[in-house]
Amino acid sequence: MLVIENLHVSVGDKPVLRGIDLEIAAGEVHAIMGPNGSGKSTLSYVLAGREGYEVTAGRALFEGRDLLAQAPEERAADGLFLAFQYPVELPGVTNMNFLKESVNAVRAKRDEGPLDAMQFLKHVRAKTSQLAITDEMLRRAVNVGFSGGEKKRNEVLQMAVLEPKLAVLDETDSGLDIDALKIVSEGVNALRSPERSMLVITHYQRLLNHIVPDRVHVLAHGRIVDSGGRELAEKLEASGYADYEATEAA
């Protein structure tokens, strides 16, 4: 599904990712953990195509295609989804309209016709109840005046509606209380399928109690310094990142 080879990325003149290798097969859920400043968010933004990041070496293939050569909207249409750590507020754009524009843009790229109003409503309604998203939230401007939990639920709703092949979840647990974390995790788990892969980026192990990964990678100083099964996350919870940071300093 996703193959990252020797990926080097700089922001300005500063190297942030310094040789990432990662392979995620269809249906797998991988977690990337790491301390602040390790390059976690940079990785998610580079995969989604945000400007301001310079790829100085390496490549990323999404279903065999050169991901990094594509515009952000092409990546999304091909089935890549980034759940933002800080969802953007869009005053004047209603949530419902945003979802509709998004779904129909992706469908157009795949040469599928737009959903009509009824079909679309049915499609969205099927996803909202599980995420405790009310009609009122759908009528409001995207993320404007939303609480932290509402914003993250909204991200998962977009993911559910767009049905991506690969979802990158960037610190989806940040700013969530226990109840919100549960709702969001259940929403994500409901989307797990043998055809859908996920890359869960997080600072804390607690999200991984809810979204149980197949593989866990530790990112420090722009490199993956350790990989393992879910038990690696538990080990990290106990020991912290100090070992990995010390390794780099040495």
């Binding site: 195509g49 909207e73 990546r75 969802p87 869009l90 754009v93 524009e101 843009a105 767009l162």
Partner: peptide, 19 residues
């Protein structure tokens, strides 16, 4: 905001129009 819209599959010209 433009990047957010594009990351949801909305082409640049359309994203600008929406904003």
């Amino acid at each position: 905001a433009l990047f957010y819209l594009r990351a949801r599959g909305i082409p640049l010209a359309r994203a600008r129009h929406l904003l």
